[in-house]
């Protein structure tokens, strides 16, 4: 499985670097995208010293985690899972199903959109600067934050996969992913900005807060075993549900060519 994984990633990187001429344009877009994401935060801190208890570096860390996820979403989820809708409609999914490896893994990691590598780099740099400014962090907090961040990304992957599975049954669901990206956009702000209802929706419905605010809180040492267990539970549930939905959808898939 690890071998397949690394082969997939290598192949998709090779494909994406065929189009080097766009690199400059994409660098400009990526950097501007990050800038336009930080700009509102900069504006907010012109008028206040803390947003709902979050100081500038802490709020900025939430933003960098969001940008990191945004890069994953745009560079990995969108080109792969978004394409599955097309594959199903045109019948090309059959070509992937007959390959001797797990089809879910294959359709999830076929391609990488290199334009988001810039965002990825910039957001990691930003996160690093923020963490340095927040000050000393205990090893346990840091480890938990990393675990929770990975868990959050997996939860969002599960949600994307669930959305994609609906395209086995309905034709026009392309826009479902716009809905997902928009809902995820709310994750760029610290969770405590929102009312309890919205916070729940963004934790258990579209679990974007698990990617952004939850790890950032853990890094500040503001976690309890209940929140950690709850977050991991939600993450597992999304990934598990996605797997079940994918297997079920495949079982009922009648293919376009057979």
């Amino acid at each position: 499985m690890i071998r397949i994984l690394s082969a997939l990633i290598r192949a998709s990187l090779m494909v994406s670097f065929q189009y080097r001429s766009d690199l400059f344009f994409e660098a400009a877009t990526g950097i501007l995208r990050c800038f336009s994401a930080i700009a509102p935060l900069w504006l907010a801190f012109q008028h206040t010293t803390a947003i709902a208890g979050w100081t500038p570096p802490q709020a900025m860390l939430v933003m960098s985690l969001f940008l990191l996820f945004h890069a994953l979403q745009g560079g990995l989820f969108e080109p792969n899972l978004g394409e599955v809708v097309q594959l199903i409609r045109q019948g090309n999914l059959d070509l992937w199903l007959i390959k001797p490896a797990d089809a879910q893994l294959l359709v999830s990691l076929r391609r990488i959109d290199p334009s988001y590598l810039w965002d990825f780099g910039v957001s990691i740099l930003m996160a690093g600067v923020c963490i340095a400014q927040i000050g000393p962090i205990s090893a346990l907090d840091a480890a938990l934050a990393a675990l929770l961040a990975v868990n959050g990304v997996l939860a969002m992957y599960g949600l994307w996969m669930l959305a994609i599975c609906t395209s086995f049954y309905f034709v026009r669901v392309d826009n479902l992913r716009y809905l997902l990206t928009t809902a995820a956009d709310a994750g760029r702000w610290p969770a405590s900005v929102f009312s309890t209802g919205i916070r729940w929706a963004l934790t258990a419905g579209v679990p974007i807060l698990l990617v952004t605010s939850t790890p950032a809180e853990a890094l500040r040492g503001q976690w309890t075993w209940t929140t950690v267990a709850g977050s991991l539970g939600i993450g597992l549930a999304f990934v598990g549900l996605a797997r079940v939905a994918w297997m079920r959808s495949l079982a009922s898939y009648t293919s376009a060519s057979s």
Partner: peptide, 12 residues
């Protein structure tokens, strides 16, 4: 999105 921005700026 304006509703999200509403929540943020209201807090501030």
């Amino acid at each position: 999105l304006p509703l999200v921005m509403l929540a943020l700026w209201e807090t501030i």
